[in-house]
Amino acid sequence: MSNRNNLLVYILAVGVFGIINTEMGVIGILPSIADHFHVSVSKAGLLVSVFALVVAISAPIMPLLFSGLNRKTVMLIGLGFFVLGNILSIMTTNFTLVLIARIIPAIFHPIYCSLAFTIAAESVSKEEAPKAVSKVFIGVSAGMVVGVPIVSFIDGAISLEMAMAFFAIVNAIIFVATLIFMPSMPVERGLSYGAQLSVLKKSITWLSIVAVILLNSAVFGVYSYLAEYLKTVTNVSSTIISILLFIYGVANIIGNILAGKLLTKNANKSVVVFPFALGAIYIVLFLFGQLTFPMAIITLIWGILAGIGANINQHWVMSSAPEAPIFSNSLFLTSANLGTMIGAAVGGIFIAELGTPYVVFVGFLSLLLSIVFIFLRNYMYNPKTKQLAS
């Protein structure tokens, strides 16, 4: 990539970090938020769950509505709402206002992320697109797993207000960088709403969406309870739990980097192999998860695979509808969020009914079902069987 395109991709990666960190960063400061606003921790958790729900609902709608506008303008609008929402969160002492201050930016979350993936892919050749997108995904992983301990540290070392200010500062920096360095990107030949929605008529789109929901459920149905698993099954201290969670986060970023190379080399093979590789890790986890050292190795490999999986999910949906890239990326965001919500919910049921060790079965079941839809898509859209499928 040229230096200019590299700069553009890095701005997008940090921008996505700011967006995702605003979404997930509050996880590390929920107890402080509960104390500050005089609400229960479960009610403070609405700042996470409601945000995710709004993203899932708005993902297929907002990018479609804004698809005809200048991309730079749209990204600045989204970043502006995130900056204003974060500032309002710092200034108010009313929990309802804080919730509103997060809901409004959450509506614009899918617009920015969809555009970030699309612009990164379009800034390079078709063959190099997975590598460019994988760099943006580093921002996603960093926002999810690195931002949380950073915000938690600021909260403990300085104050809750400064921790929340971190969200605003990152988004403000990217707003300025986007304003100065990102070129104007008017839509020269905008697709009509009907043309974009027409991708939903294709069976390959729905096969891809269901597969991604299941693949994300397989990852987050287990990962959502990793801390609980380490505490009750592996039986390690809170310090070791923090270290292992950090290892998972770093491994996730490594997985993003590897994914770009794997998808560029042989995307279809990478998608097919992924559920089997993750399934093998879950088997080892179920058998040896009570042992500390094996658990550390498992966590490292699991984190790498999860990073690869995030890129695979985006590629799988995007490649099913390349004629409407922004809308297909929004479908990916909806699918990923639905998979996360379903996996976490089912994982909670398994833990309540069977016990923490059996949360791994959520991953197994999701992976088995995902394999069906992956192979079904590959069969129906293989050149040798395309005529039969049609």
Rank of each mutant, 00 (worst) to 15 (best):
L12N: 08
G15A: 14
N21S: 15
E23F: 05
A34Y: 08
S40T: 14
S42N: 15
A44M: 14
L47C: 08
V48P: 04
F51P: 00
F51Q: 05
V55M: 07
A56P: 01
I57M: 03
A59T: 00
A59W: 00
M62E: 00
F66G: 01
K72W: 07
V74I: 12
V74P: 05
L79G: 06
F81D: 03
F81Y: 09
G85D: 04
N86A: 15
I87M: 14
I87T: 07
L88W: 09
I90A: 14
T93R: 15
F95R: 12
L97Q: 06
V98H: 03
V98T: 09
L99C: 08
I100R: 07
A101T: 10
R102T: 01
R102A: 00
I104K: 07
I107Y: 00
P110V: 05
S114N: 05
A116P: 02
S123F: 14
S123K: 15
S125R: 12
S125D: 11
E128G: 06
K131P: 08
I138Y: 06
G143H: 10
V151N: 07
V151R: 12
I154L: 13
G156K: 11
A163E: 05
M164T: 08
F167G: 02
A168T: 10
A168I: 07
A168C: 13
I173A: 15
F175P: 01
F181R: 13
S184N: 12
M185D: 01
V187F: 03
R189G: 06
L197T: 03
L200V: 11
I204W: 00
I209A: 09
L214A: 14
L215S: 09
A218T: 10
V222L: 11
V222Q: 10
Y223I: 13
E228K: 10
Y229E: 05
L230E: 06
K231L: 12
I241T: 13
F246R: 10
I247P: 02
G249K: 08
N256W: 09
I257P: 02
L258I: 03
N268P: 00
K269M: 06
V271N: 01
G279M: 12
L285V: 03
F288P: 01
G289F: 01
T292F: 09
A296N: 05
L300G: 05
W302S: 06
A306D: 01
I312R: 00
Q314R: 06
M318W: 00
N329I: 06
I342N: 03
G348I: 05
L354A: 11
G355A: 13
V360F: 03
S366T: 04
L367T: 06
S370C: 14
V372I: 11
V372C: 04
T385L: 07
S390P: 00
